[in-house]
Amino acid sequence: MGITFEQVSYRYKERALKQHLALDHIDLSLKTNQFITIVGAPGSGKSTLLQHLNGLLRADHGTIHVLDMVISPSPAKLPKGLNQRIGLVFQYPEQQLFKETIWEDLLYGPLNFDMSKTEAELAAKTAAEFMGLDDLILAKCPYQLSSGQIRKAAIAAVLAAGPEIIVLDEPTASLDASSRLELMTLLHRQCQEQGRTVIVVTHALEEVAPFTDQIIVMDEGTIAFVGKPHELVNRTDLIDKAGLQIPAAYELYAALQKPLRLSKLDHYPSAAELAAVIKAAIS
């Protein structure tokens, strides 16, 4: 079980002047129960890739295996339950809220997927609790909430349907720094505690580096890199092309590595860890 793309290609259908491949024979194999980050320059195909995971877009060629389901190019039918098991959260998800209260919006997904009222209410409550939304907030109308709260509510609405894999496109866009950290921590906990696979598209490498198990770099519709963050930081060509910035942790470690004769990195060094390592090297 996992997520596999086999020679998946997709061409934009719009009346474009140039018809180029949005996804160019993609081969990708991912394990579940991980926190995966996808990065790449605008137009590299990240959003297109995400939309293939829950069947919003259908590949022209190639097969996609998600968990125990198989997605073949149309006119083959989409596997039953795909939508529910893969939760997709678009950018600025608060735009999709339309019910009078947050609580009703949390119930919308579960009820659409034919959960009973009791099941739906339990699912909504669980999702709300996890995201730190208390009853007071749930009773409010979306316009009365802060940007951080409403973002959490919108994500809770997708979590409520109980997806095994949750995919988020720029989940922290526009939020203040503390809200960004809070959200990333919550998503990481979804992975660690709830066993969900979390896939995040972002360019803020700095905020995702402490949490992510794997990074995928996309470039012009192809997969340019799959690996761990500390492996990516040496690939300055990819980093520049994708418009990314190397997180300070890696930069500082790299600067100190030779002089302090530090060992090669195999994970993200927290500030505490780096301080301890420096202390050890100096003493």
Binding site: D176, L181, A248, A271
Partner: peptide, 15 residues
Amino acid sequence: CRLEAPYVLELCKEL
């Protein structure tokens, strides 16, 4: 101000 201490500041504190 709901700002987060940058990594390098955290490092100074940990040191």
